[in-house]
């Protein structure tokens, strides 16, 4: 009774012993948690490891499956692409994991992306004359799919193409992803678009084509400005002109990608 009331002198001692025992209990709980989490994580890792090995074929051949797998890896801070040459993005806690994964997946998944990257480079180079080195991710995907290279086409997703382009970065090849309007495009010639050029390309995406007077009317540009931008774009092979219309129309070369021939 008296102890519970805790009004005597001994109450002070009780209280301090109580708090130390709380603290020690808390510490032991924390460490228990930590070990159980660590076990869980390592179990999960080994399961993921097994999973990756077991389903390596599916990961390579099924784009949807691959995208989901990549998302899963991302969620726990594992970058399937972080190979020996690229330091794992997941710094700190994930450091050990990064290299581990490079080892686990290196043989299969990494190779897949490097192989795809080679295809992407081929496709970009092959179509450079038509599109000035600016190729939509979507179109690139289609071209890779219908590719006629050794081993035929590869079935890939947008996500795969983006990863493949990223994997080219260490090479300093100048391949990069740029956003033009709502579209992601692969730039294979290191050149910046200025704001006006981007605006025009965006407008072409929406409208299909553009004319000088459309630019003047809708954007309030004067003729010289519209004319200069279009001349620049023409000079860089980024648009094609149709001179058989009442006013010269400028079209995006995206339509030119057709492997029917």
């Amino acid at each position: 009774m008296s102890a519970r009331r805790g009004v005597g002198l001994s109450a002070f001692q009780n209280r301090s012993s109580l708090s130390t025992s709380y603290a020690s209990h808390g510490a032991s709980l924390r460490s228990a948690h930590l070990t159980s989490l660590q076990t869980q994580l390592s179990v999960f890792q080994s399961l993921l490891h097994n999973f990756a090995l077991q389903h390596a074929d599916t990961i390579k051949s099924n784009p949807t499956f691959r995208a989901e797998f990549a998302r899963m890896c991302n969620a726990i801070g594992v970058d399937p692409l972080a190979g020996s040459n690229v330091k794992g993005k997941s710094a700190g806690g994930g450091k050990g994991i990064g290299s581990l994964w490079a080892k686990v997946l290196g043989g299969d998944v990494n190779d897949f992306y490097f192989e795809l990257a080679v295809r992407v480079v081929e496709v970009c180079r092959g179509s450079r004359g038509e599109n000035g080195g600016l190729l939509g991710v979507e179109e690139c995907k289609e071209l890779v799919k219908r590719g006629r290279g050794i081993g035929g086409g590869m079935d890939v997703s947008d996500d795969d193409v983006l990863r493949a382009v990223k994997s080219l970065k260490p090479l300093g090849s100048g391949f990069s992803i740029v956003n033009v309007g709502s579209k992601q495009m692969i730039r294979s010639i290191p050149k910046e678009l200025n704001t006006d050029q981007s605006t025009v390309l965006e407008a072409i995406q929406v409208l299909g084509y553009i004319t000088c007077s459309m630019l003047e009317d809708n954007l309030g540009w004067d003729h010289a400005r519209a004319d200069t931008v279009i001349k620049d774009l023409l000079g860089d092979s980024l648009v094609w002109v149709d001179l058989q219309a009442p006013e010269a129309e400028y079209w995006s070369p995206a339509f030119m990608n057709d492997f029917e021939d």
């Binding site: 023409l234 092979s237 094609w240 002109v241 149709d242 001179l243 058989q244 129309e249 079209w251 030119m256």
Partner: peptide, 10 residues
């Protein structure tokens, strides 16, 4: 693709 029928200046 209409521009295919116009020989391109570039």
């Amino acid at each position: 693709y209409p521009p295919f029928f116009t020989l391109q200046p570039n």
